[in-house]
Simulated scan of single mutants.
Amino acid sequence: MSSVSIHPTAIVASGARLGANVRIGPYCIVGENVVLDADVELISHVVVEGHTHVGAGTRIYPFASVGHQPQDLKYKGEASRLEIGERCVIREAATLNPGTAAGGMLTKVGNECLIMASAHVAHDTIIGNNVIMANYVGIAGHCRIGDNVTFGGTVVVHQRTRIGAHAFIGAQSMVDGDVIPYGMAVGNRASLAGLNLVGLKRRQFDREAIHRLRAAYRMIFSNEGTLRERTEDAAELFKDDDLVQDVVAFITSASDRPILVPRNGQVASED
């Protein structure tokens, strides 16, 4: 504890576990079942409650509410958990809730995520690594968000929705269906607007792999046959392509929500 810094105005419960070099700023409150790993910083006026584990190097900004009971009327006080990964940044007034008995008892945020001001992560949602949530993004309960997903500001995501890895969700969108990996969704209600080519290029995906992914996208979301038939055709034609198989597996796996498709059945330009 000698390396831990706790401001005199902070309240830290006796049962809380604090790693090396944890810094707890003015007027913060840390509950008795909280674990803060090494180098976590609560800047000021942060509340961390419940069975919450915050990974090493994460910084949480003023007025964030982390680990309070979920906004679910079915919650009955069960000892559900919230896990936040390493090197995350959680900005002002963000809210993150633990899980529920109906959803696996766990809400989880991966490593190196940026959750901007006033964003919300609801109960039982699982978020991957390197996810960026801009200001006022709201993720409802039971959602599944893949690695490297980026949300523009004021996006709302319907409960039990899946968003695949490397997807991009445009600002002010209301997403009520599943977004394929590498896809881009925009609108209220959102529709598929092509592939996230900017993100793929920034992350230095192979040029030829992107070309194959574009060809598969056009096949899967064309107007001939059913979505299932087109997906099966793409799976066979691109059977050795990892990116295409990611999309195929996502579409064919069970889900509570429909797959988002281009508006009016037209394949949008991805240029």
Results as ranks from 00 to 15, higher is better:
G57Y: 03
A249C: 09
R214C: 11
V89A: 08
R59K: 15
D124T: 02
V137T: 10
F168W: 09
T100C: 00
I180Y: 00
T231V: 13
T161M: 09
G25Q: 08
E92S: 11
E86A: 15
K239F: 09
A102S: 15
F205W: 13
E32Y: 02
Y217G: 08
G199K: 09
A171L: 13
L243W: 10
V131Q: 07
A13I: 06
L195W: 01
A140V: 05
F250L: 09
P26L: 11
H120L: 12
M116A: 03
A234K: 07
R228H: 03
C113I: 12
G199F: 02
R17M: 11
A171W: 05
T107G: 09
V47S: 09
S173Q: 06
A193F: 01
T100L: 02
R218E: 13
H7S: 12
G141T: 13
R228Y: 03
G146F: 09
Y182C: 00
F168V: 04
N264V: 00
N130A: 06
A134G: 06
I210L: 01
V186K: 05
R212K: 14
T100D: 11
I127P: 00
E92L: 11
G138F: 07
L96R: 00
A235R: 14
T231G: 04
T252W: 01
R257H: 03
T95G: 04
V244H: 02
T107N: 06
V4N: 02
S3C: 05
G19T: 08
A215S: 14
Y217D: 02
S222L: 08
A122H: 09
N111Q: 07
V34Q: 05
